[in-house]
Amino acid sequence: MPYAVSFQQVSRHFGTVRAVDAVDLEIEAGEFFAMLGPSGSGKTTCLRLIAGFEQPTSGHIEIFGETAEGVPPYRRNVNTVFQDYALFPHLNVADNVAYGLMIRGAGKAERTREAEAALEMVKLPGYGARKPGQLSGGQRQRVALARALVNKPKVLLLDEPLGALDLKLREQMQEELKVLQKALGITFVFVTHDQGEALSMADRIAVFNEGRIMQTGTPEEIYRRPRTRFVADFVGSSNVLSPQLTERLAGVAEWSSLRPEDIRLGDESGQDATVTGTSFLGSATRVTLDVSGEKINVLLPSGAPVPSQGESVRFSWDKNALHLMGAGA
């Protein structure tokens, strides 16, 4: 079984900007794959390389074993849900959804049937006659999803599709997308800058920074065992400890990460620290400690006693919680 998408040393340069720089990537068929990174990290360019809107400056791309270079977007069995949805304003919802079928030359009856089925799948049955302008943001998002899925693509690309939705709707859509992906078995490639979204939805995540992939792995791996300082910091705001501090705390002179929720306060055998600030987050309280000049965040579950600013405390952690990342990370 070939990979759904594979990149071999793929670069895309815009003038002197290396938007994507020598990326190797393998996405398994049927996988829910997230590309996570800050804006300008190259994740969207990677998506556009798969869609065919960009051509690589160098390197090789395969989609289900077939060479993708030079193949225009309209000859790829790949569909995209755009960030701004890009619904056609002059067509009603049904014609929007059936656009791909119409281009393929499908008859009117088939188009109507398939469009209605796709709309039902995204829980918008009977919305076919409306114009995109009459829909809410969440509904437009579903129409965009139906318009892509109706073509039964081998790979569905989603470019920050939930970015414009409010929190509650976003959580609901995350759940629905996951269910839909499992039911259809289509490979989903999902671009996001929201680490929570990536962790909760994806089977595997690639973390991008400055045009390169920093780490690829399951959400659990990325979260528990970040390979670089960037990943540790970007995914779940882990504490990154310098080699000096790590040596003092664990006896090894390497960069390390320590998750804020893995730290306990008040253990008499623990290390000394000074509280420099606290902030209430709702489900937890974040306490900022100063440990010999370095800042360490601690997440206390709600209900735990919160120390006050300037107080001296002792802190400790599970032996496995401190994750070493190597000297050069």
Binding site: A51, G52, F53, P72, P73, Y74, V78, N79, T80, F82, A86, L87, F88, Y99, G100, I103, R104, R147, A148, N151
Partner: peptide, 8 residues
């Protein structure tokens, strides 16, 4: 781009 993506 959406149109091209949908096969046109």
């Amino acid at each position: 781009e959406a149109s091209m993506d949908l096969g046109a």
